[in-house]
Design a protein around this nucleic acid. Sequence first.
DNA 1: TTCCTGACTCCAG
DNA 2: CCTGGAGCCAGGA
Length: 114
Amino acid sequence: MSNNKHESFFNDVYDVVRLIPTGRVTSYGAIAKYLSIGRAARMVGWAMNAAHGQNPPVPAQRVVNRNGMLTGKHHFKTPYEMEELLQLEGINVINDRVVNFETIFWDPNEELSL
DNA sequence: TTCCTGACTCCAG
DNA sequence: CCTGGAGCCAGGA
């Protein structure tokens, strides 16, 4: 990943998100921890806010909060898009929450070797 | 410059 | 189990 400060921070986040396998999800906090910014999980969400229109695309729908809830759904084109994208990838969502979250959770801190 | 607001988490009651 | 406060840090007013 890059060495620069905040400019590359967004790109670092995007890179990690792009590595999330189809059918899996991770959390803002897990990404923050992986990027060594510890508790600044909000920044990951902030980065997602600017992730629209990136090339290659950033699968922001695969990033949810620590409980598997789709807290960012309102930031998509429509409030249903996030859920729909996940369903297309085989991820079930009920009541704004990822079903079987614990099982399909993908932790960059474990899946990616530092 | 100060104040406020988050696509978050953790911890104390 | 639920609620509130604090930490986090970048931007906008």
